[in-house]
Design a protein around this nucleic acid. Structure first.
Lengths: 165, 165
DNA sequence: CAGAGCATGTAAGAAGTTACATGATTGT
DNA sequence: ACAATCATGTAACTTCTTACATGCTCTG
C-alpha cells in the first residue's frame, strides 16, 4: 500500500479544527488560525486555500457546496481517511515531544550580550504581554489548555527574572 | 535612512551564534542548529549557505578566508551593522513574547477526540522523551536555560496528566 | 451609504527542504 | 581501507507570505 507522507502541523491542525466543528469553510479555518496567540499560525489565505485543495486531492476531506442564493459557501468535512490521518497526527509521540519553536527560549542564552538592564526590561515586557494574552474563546478545552500553559509560562519567567536579576 | 527589514528568527539566531564564538563557518552554524533539541532548527545546508550569502550581501557579516593548504574554511564575523541588527533582534519585545509553536500545546485541545488511554500514553511518552532530551553541551548559558525550561515543562506535563487522568 | 466582516481565490516572490555533487581529513 | 566528519555549495521542488482581485451581507 501507498504510504502518504505524514501531515504537516498546519494540515493536522486544520483537520483537527474541522473535527471539532464537524464542517468548516476555508475562511473559517483561516480565521481560526489567525485568532491564535501565536504568530506561527498566521492564517494567511495564500496558505490555507491551497492547502485545502491539497487535502481534498489527497482524499482526506470532501467539500460540499452550501451556497445560499448569491453568497458562496464551500464547507469541508473529514473523510474516513481524514479521520485516520488526524488520529495519527494527534498521537504522534515524536512530533508531540518536539521542543518546537520558542522565541524567548531562543534569545535567553544570548541575553548575556546585552546590558543587564535591557535584559530585565525584555523579561518585564514579555511577562506583561503574556499576562495580557487573550485566551481562545471558541472552545472550553482550548481555553483550559491556554490557561495552564500561561500559568507555567509566568512561573518560568519569574524564575528567569531571579536568575537575571 | 533605508530601514532594512527585521531579521528572521533563523538570521537572528545565526548572528547570535557568531557573536558567542566571535567567528564561525557556515558549516559550524549549520551544525549548531542541527544539534538543537527542536526540529524547528533543522540545520539544512540549503537554508544556511544561502542565508549567509544574504547576510553578507546586507553587510551584517563579513567573510574571511582561513583556508589552510587544501582544506577550505570561510569564517564569518559580525560587522558593526550586524552587531546592531543582532541587538535589535535580541531585545525585540513583540517577538520574544510570541507564543511560538509548540506541538504538544497544539494537540492538547483536540485530545478529547482520541480514547483516554491513547491520550495518557501520549503524555507518558512526551514526559519520558522530555526527560531524556540532551542538554546543549557547547554553552553553559544554553545548558542552564535548557534545564530550567525542562523543569517547567515536566511540571506542566505532570499537571496535564492529572487533568487527563 | 460607508465600512467591517464574510467568502472565494490567485500571482509573484521569498525561504525552506531534500537530495545531490565534490573533495580533504581524521580515527579505527 | 573505510567510515565519519569537515567543508563547500547547488538544483529542483514545496510551501508560505504579501498583496491583489472580486463581490455579498450586515450594522451604524
Amino acid at each position: 500500500m501507498l504510504s502518504t507522507p505524514p501531515l504537516t502541523e498546519l494540515e493536522g491542525a486544520a483537520l483537527a479544527l474541522i473535527k471539532r466543528e464537524t464542517a468548516l469553510t476555508a475562511y473559517e479555518i483561516k480565521e481560526g488560525f489567525r485568532r491564535s496567540p501565536s504568530s506561527y499560525w498566521s492564517g494567511s489565505a495564500g496558505a490555507v486555500y491551497p492547502m485545502m485543495k491539497r487535502l481534498e486531492g489527497a482524499g482526506l476531506v470532501v467539500s460540499l457546496d452550501e451556497s445560499n442564493s448569491r453568497r458562496p459557501r464551500k464547507v469541508f468535512r473529514l473523510t474516513n481517511g481524514g479521520e485516520a490521518a488526524l488520529r495519527s497526527w494527534l498521537i504522534d509521540e515524536e512530533r508531540a515531544a518536539d521542543a518546537g519553536y520558542d522565541p524567548l527560549r531562543t534569545r535567553l542564552p544570548f541575553l548575556v550580550h546585552v546590558e543587564r538592564r535591557a535584559a530585565r526590561e525584555l523579561l518585564d515586557s514579555v511577562e506583561a504581554r503574556t499576562r495580557e494574552m487573550p485566551a481562545p474563546s471558541e472552545d472550553r478545552h482550548a481555553a483550559l489548555v491556554h490557561e495552564s500553559w500561561r500559568v507555567m509560562r509566568l512561573a518560568w519567567i519569574a524564575e528567569l527574572k531571579c536568575q537575571f536579576g
